[in-house]
Nucleic acid binder design. Structure first.
Lengths: 260, 260
DNA sequence: TCCTGTCTTTTGGTCCAACAAATAAACAGC
DNA sequence: GCTGTTTATTTGTTGGACCAAAAGACAGGA
């Protein structure tokens, strides 16, 4: 037995979860998902009508509708009057929404998120320096240049996020990127508030440019220092916050920020 | 206007989303969540019955049920026969489930996840070395000892995960911990398959002990090396996998693993 | 008094029928 | 061929019905 076969067997074993659930709605959710899979439906394709689904799977229309509500909550389908349920690409968005709602948006969590970003964005420096091509770094420059478009706070925050997202993308790890994107609403909000306090697009552009230059000259120490300082700067505006949780988070927020 | 007030104003501005949605189901979802908030209900408390909710909010029972299905999908409530909908603490689990669902479980994603873990678990070394107390490290020892209980593959995998989770916890960053926990099903599965190939609880225990000792002696270089090697070892069993995606992911998977 | 088994009532689970609203598709008029 | 109108289909929502499960009331016995 080779290792891959063993792997797949273990995966199959993991697939069975709760045999206890015999709810018709849950069953329908699975059946509809299976239907999508076996018919090879893709984003934009429409599912059968609610009545058809009910007839096909021996269920009442209300039961079908409850199942569709679940799929809709998952971002799998988007249901429009007359058209019916069409396969949606809003799954990631649903995950983000759901995730955001467990992370309360507060000054404390802002500091926490910045601490997370410092860990991640510092940690990927070595990989970027070792593997990024000149074209990759040039593209970072191009993305950074867009921040000078100066189209208001929201737009600047979006550009700022895109730069950091591109940075994380260069780590070439899908899991990391997905996790980072999960925090997009919070991160963008941090940026928005920072820029609302005083418009500093030009400063942001300059710092990003310095970061890119550090990467181009393969200077990992400079990169780590610049990223740390840049992220720390981003939460200056919540400095006044001094309650317990924020303080604890802050100690982690500052981790690894020793000046070279 | 101080910065905190500005922050809160920006948050409020972010709160309004789509005023276009007038669906009765969506309205009910919001109303029920508001009901929970204003009554100060906590985990375990029961909501009014479906019939009562319908009467209170001027909606049919089927509509209420559809709203409850959405809340259930979000892990906000758990509905039990006869009791009704009770507030649940399964929100994180719902997020995990939803997240896992976008990350297909495959050898390629296993390698990717190990790469993610290497970035994270290496990256937090400095903070742990600087801030962890002797008691923290002793607790790591205690957790590590549990892996010798030798209660089968599943149990060993669970203990293994708990050790690494404890490690990440010492980084003292809620966001990082939440993201790491999101990957629990995949990580545990990696461990399970690794241990199924050959039971190596004692080896895992030894390596973990070495890692703890590196932390106790504040040796960041040894820690980084040991963690990297430990995680790389964990995916030996998928070495045969050589398709494109796995190979790309692998290059990131190996990042920062240069021997000191 | 306290335990135990039975019975009633409440409640979620499922389905059906009906109507309203929206809209894609067919159609008539030019 | 284009445009405005009509039609038919489909989702959105509601009320009602019935079933099964379970909590709570209740009666009976140790």
């Amino acid at each position: 037995m080779n290792t891959d076969a063993m792997l797949l067997a273990a995966l199959a074993a993991n697939a069975v979860q709760e045999p206890a659930r015999v709810s018709a709605v849950d069953r329908l959710v699975d059946q509809i998902r299976e239907l999508v899979r076996e018919r090879g439906l893709v984003i934009g394709d429409a599912l059968p009508t609610e009545r058809d689904l009910g007839e096909q799977f021996q269920a009442g229309r209300n039961t079908v509708r409850e199942a569709l509500q679940v799929l809709k909550a998952y971002g799998i389908v988007e249901v429009r009057p007359k058209i019916g349920a069409v396969l949606s690409d809003r799954h990631e968005e649903a995950v983000r929404k759901l995730f955001a709602f467990q992370n309360d948006i507060s000054p404390a969590s802002f500091i926490d998120v910045q601490g997370y970003r410092r860990i991640v964005e510092s940690g990927i420096g070595d990989h970027i320096i070792l593997h990024a091509t000149a074209a990759d770094l040039d593209q970072l420059d191009a993305i950074n240049a867009r921040i000078l478009g100066n189209n208001g706070v929201d737009d600047a925050a979006r550009c700022d996020f895109e730069f950091h997202e591109a940075l994380v993308t260069l780590a070439n790890n899908r899991t990391l990127l997905a996790n980072y994107r999960l925090l997009q609403p919070v991160i963008t909000q941090i940026m928005r508030v920072g820029k609302a306090t005083r418009p500093v697009q030009i400063d942001t552009f300059e710092v990003h440019a310095q970061i890119i230059n550090a990467l181009k000259s393969r200077d990992r120490v400079a990169y780590a220092y610049l990223i740390s300082r840049h992220l720390e700067h981003g939460l200056q505006f919540v400095e006044t916050e001094q309650n317990g949780r924020a303080h604890i988070a802050r100690s982690s927020g500052r981790m690894g920020s020793s000046r070279p």
